[in-house]
Computed example of a mutant assay.
Amino acid sequence: MSKNPFRLVECPRDAMQGLHDFVPTQLKSAYLNLLLQVGFDTLDFGSFVSPKAIPQMADTAAVLAQLDLSNTSTRLLAIVANLRGVEEAVKHKEINYLGFPFSVSETFQQRNTNSSIAQSLTTVEEMLSLCDKNDKTAVLYLSMGFGNPYGDEWNYEIVEHWADILISKGVKILSLADTVGVSTPEKITSILPKLISRFNHTEIGIHLHSTPTERVEKIAAAYDAGVKRIDSALKGFGGCPMAADDLTGNIATEDVITFLNSKGVNLNLNMDKWNEAMILSSRIFG
């Protein structure tokens, strides 16, 4: 068995954010505290965004106050969508990473963050400065990275163009995000090796959405492409509520675990705590 070279990012925030019924803060915290004990590299636990836009995440600060970080090596990531969210997130010393969704689709950038690509680039610059001053690391999600349903132009050159600009401004972690489930194994194995090769001093990850029948082939493609940072969510719950009416779920973490185990990767995860989280998840997701 080899030492685990992968950064697994568990995304309960992404899984919960589109739920219609509000999940009580105490239940959210109990679920997250179990996931913190599993041993993931990073936990995408909440977001500092408008409660009108994402009501489910209105209690992120209250949830954070209930998290037990005394016996975990897992680092916390919070999503932000504007400068106000950045300024709120950097106040919390417990948070390690700030994630920002930067779309190569103008239509989706407006839909997701209520700002243009140009305005969002200014926000990214300000976020990078605030992260440096507050000992945080920015994670940029290059959303609509595999295409979009809005008719906006998409090709690999556009993806590479924006990756180049963001990295030149100081982004150290870039995650190519599918958002609407249009990625294919062919696109993954075509795009990711080029990005990883060109930006070899940047951590390039992947955040895929998928139907259940296509999950494993996409995980296998990411593995073959050399991706070492993988976002996923327990049971594949969730999807982006700002993207479409019919949500395409996340990649299921259990599929990632099973696949990597089959490749002889020692993930060093506490599967007892994982199983407890699986059981508790039914109270959140039904």
Rank of each mutant, 00 (worst) to 15 (best):
148 N>L: 04
92 H>R: 09
265 V>I: 03
195 L>W: 01
161 H>C: 13
103 S>N: 04
166 L>F: 04
148 N>Q: 04
164 D>H: 07
255 D>V: 12
54 I>W: 10
35 L>Y: 01
14 D>Q: 11
91 K>L: 15
246 D>W: 12
36 L>E: 01
128 L>F: 07
63 V>C: 03
148 N>F: 11
206 I>V: 01
222 A>P: 01
19 L>G: 04
255 D>N: 13
100 F>V: 05
129 S>A: 15
48 F>D: 06
58 A>P: 10
204 I>R: 01
175 S>L: 06
189 T>E: 13
119 Q>W: 11
31 Y>H: 02
221 A>C: 04
159 V>T: 09
55 P>D: 11
209 H>V: 05
44 D>I: 07
224 D>P: 09
227 V>N: 05
137 T>P: 11
258 T>S: 14
28 K>L: 00
11 C>Q: 06
101 P>G: 08
11 C>M: 07
138 A>D: 14
185 P>R: 00
169 K>R: 09
237 F>G: 02
216 V>C: 09
84 R>Q: 15
151 G>A: 07
121 L>H: 08
67 L>T: 08
277 A>I: 05
103 S>A: 06
109 Q>P: 03
256 V>N: 01
151 G>D: 07
40 F>T: 01
93 K>T: 15
36 L>H: 01
249 G>F: 03
126 E>D: 15
145 G>A: 06
113 T>P: 12
117 I>R: 06
230 I>K: 04
235 K>Q: 08
121 L>R: 12
82 N>A: 10
137 T>Y: 12
209 H>S: 03
5 P>N: 04
99 G>K: 10
163 A>W: 06
157 E>Y: 11
69 L>T: 08
184 T>A: 00
118 A>R: 06
59 D>E: 04
241 P>S: 06
131 C>E: 07
161 H>E: 14
27 L>P: 00
118 A>D: 13
13 R>E: 03
114 N>C: 14
111 R>Y: 11
47 S>G: 11
178 D>E: 05
126 E>T: 14
192 L>Q: 07
102 F>M: 11
228 K>G: 02
110 Q>E: 15
17 Q>R: 04
231 D>L: 07
127 M>A: 10
245 D>K: 10
268 N>Y: 10
120 S>Y: 01
139 V>H: 11
227 V>E: 00
79 I>R: 15
133 K>V: 13
236 G>Q: 00
61 A>I: 06
92 H>L: 14
214 E>G: 12
95 I>F: 09
73 S>D: 15
235 K>C: 09
118 A>L: 09
68 D>N: 03
154 W>L: 02
39 G>L: 02
31 Y>Q: 00
224 D>W: 13
102 F>L: 11
255 D>H: 14
165 I>H: 05
182 V>M: 11
190 S>M: 10
188 I>R: 05
29 S>G: 00
8 L>Y: 07
67 L>Y: 06
112 N>L: 08
268 N>M: 09
140 L>F: 09
243 A>M: 11
271 M>K: 02
229 R>K: 12
42 T>F: 12
